[in-house]
Design a protein around this nucleic acid. Structure first.
Length: 272
DNA sequence: ACCGGAGCCTGTTAGC
DNA sequence: TGCTAACAGGCTCCGG
């Protein structure tokens, strides 16, 4: 569920309540929430460690802890994080809980249980395969052009490939292609220079708009304080099947690509 | 190299 | 109204 703008919004909201805190213990009623190491080993290794930095890489949250340990969390489709007083009533979808030294808890709520937490000493073992960060200064139209040329893939599924670019999911892929006026079925290696420029700008525009709006609360996404983002009201493509295109008024369509819903305007996102 | 399908889970919604 | 099937923003594995 959460894509780059949602994860970034969560990261920023977690810094104030979590930076400087120590983790006293971890509890979980769903051991498979822990991808690595085992739940028992994670409980042992994490006890007493302080959180001194919180960041994001792609759709992963990264917590830098003492003693060279790193906690990584991926929210997948339905994960939510909240920091709340330990005596606040929980619910059946909270599966993994980090007890803190000030009486608060970091709770990992995850309806579909796809999410994962990892405790590693080298975050690159997990983050190393991710593609470039689309909002970093090192990401450029030139780099995008090179990477598109190297592949012969349909654009939409390629944008969802985390090893190609990190952080883009189904919503922002459609938004980016709409901004760029590119047909989602275009082959990556056929884009011209100017089309790559448009795609580059479209990706940044879609993600920055998502960030400005604190993410899209279409289903389960919530900020750590429980409030919703606003991006669902600012979407120009995703979910707009049958509705008029904001540019040309033609009806937006939905197709399935790579098994995922794909929304676009057949009039102003043509293949040619 | 790339594509499609299945699988991991639960909740919601569309359709009969 | 009630039941069932399809679908949901992610990602991995497998076969072709």
């Amino acid at each position: 569920m959460p894509e780059l703008p949602e994860v970034e919004t969560i990261v920023q909201a977690l810094r104030q309540p979590l930076l400087g805190r120590a983790i006293l213990e971890v509890r979980s009623d769903w051991p498979r929430h822990v991808g690595e190491p085992s739940l028992a080993e994670l409980q042992e290794r994490i006890r007493g460690l302080h959180i001194f930095a919180i960041g994001r890489r792609g759709k992963y949250l990264r917590f830098d802890l003492d003693k060279g340990e790193y906690l990584l969390i991926h929210l997948k489709m339905s994960g939510q994080l909240m920091v709340i007083a330990a005596d606040t009533p929980s619910d059946k979808h909270v599966h993994t809980v980090f007890a803190l030294d000030n009486g608060d808890e970091l709770r990992f709520r995850d309806i579909r249980k796809f999410g994962r937490v990892y405790l590693v000493t080298d975050p690159e073992t997990i983050l190393g395969k991710l593609g470039p960060e689309p909002l970093s200064s090192s990401f450029s139209a030139e780099l995008l052009f090179q990477r598109l040329q190297k592949r012969r893939r349909i654009l939409k599924p390629l944008l969802l490939d985390q090893t190609f670019i990190a952080g883009i999911g189904n919503i922002y892929a459609d938004e980016a292609l709409y901004h760029a006026r590119l047909h989602p079925k275009r082959y990556s290696h056929t884009l011209t220079d100017s089309e790559v420029d448009k795609l580059f700008v479209g990706i940044r525009k879609a993600l920055l708009l998502g960030l400005e709006n604190d993410g899209a609360s279409i289903d389960n996404y919530r900020k750590p304080d429980g409030s919703q983002g606003e991006m669902q009201q600012a979407l120009v493509a995703y979910g707009r099947e049958g509705e008029p295109c904001y540019r040309c008024s033609h009806a937006m369509v939905r197709v399935v690509l790579g098994g995922r819903s794909t929304f676009f305007c057949p009039e102003c996102q043509q293949r040619s």
